[in-house]
Design a protein around this nucleic acid. Structure first.
Ligand SMILES: [Zn+2]
Ligand SMILES: [Zn+2]
Ligand SMILES: [Zn+2]
Ligand SMILES: [Zn+2]
Lengths: 132, 132
DNA sequence: TTTCAAATGTTATATTATTACATACTGTTA
DNA sequence: TAACAGTATGTAATAATATAACATTTGAAA
């Protein structure tokens, strides 16, 4: 365990990769990149990912099977995630919008189901790609 | 082509499976179920799925890698999808809530990105599982 | 009837994720 | 300290999901 932040060795290694990346990282890309650090097999990566998600340090972008570090300091444990995804350049940005999250946290459907978590993914054109 | 609805043979076969199911269906479960109808290989299923999604006849539940028939008559071509997913029984329901979809269609982030599409997945406890 | 786009058939392979089991490390408590 | 529980690690094998590539067929329209 790393005393600073409670991450184990493998968890820290995996987190560092994701945190440094400017784009969502795929599990096998992580695996490839950490071979030199002694992580050799998929389960080691997937376990670290699972824990990091539980801790809210990273999120999975479901439609891309890829992982991003949490950029929104207020989602300690990630129960409410929103992303914008550019369909052209594939850039992914975490949306932290108080109003949006409030709206969605308070949303109830007709059936009376209890919502504990949500994930929202917007697809479109980022400002850079819009211009070109 | 089936004149009734513009679906090709394979598309119709795949759609029928999904439509009849009370739960989201996985691609390889479809494949298994259509072997008897002459569809033998993954690409045949994935192509049909892709087309059906484009047509808005089905949606992919991203966090489950599974497919459901569209229940909301107003999403002809599916650019705005929302689901509720029970974490206990895995039941998935398409949410059609005018206010919600209006809110999300009009949502804009700070960056000025243009949104063309979204997918929202709520996780929680359905009314049945809540009781037990 | 030529033509073109869409759909199909087929083989192989790529990518993503989990199972299963053995071992080691960590902190807590008897 | 010794025993214990919970967490983390290492490793091999395999399951599950998805796509590439290429040949062929079909169907509607010009
Ligand atoms: Zn976050
Ligand atoms: Zn872009
Ligand atoms: Zn729908
Ligand atoms: Zn349920």
């Amino acid at each position: 365990m790393n005393k600073e932040n409670n991450l184990s060795k493998n968890q820290q290694i995996v987190f560092d990769i994701i945190e440094k990346s400017r784009e969502p990282v795929k599990a096998y890309s992580i695996l490839f990149n950490v071979k030199k650090k002694g992580i050799k097999a998929p389960p080691q990566v997937y376990r670290a990912l699972e824990k990091l998600i539980k801790l809210g340090k990273i999120h999975k972008v479901e439609s891309k099977n890829a992982f991003v570090a949490c950029k929104s300091s207020n989602c300690e444990i990630s129960k409410a995630t929103a992303f914008s995804i550019c369909e052209t350049c594939e850039k992914v940005t975490e949306i932290s919008d108080k109003k949006l999250s409030k709206y969605l946290k308070n949303f109830h459907d007709k059936t009376g189901m209890i919502y504990k978590k949500y994930n929202l993914e917007f697809y479109g054109l980022c400002t850079t790609c819009k211009r070109s």
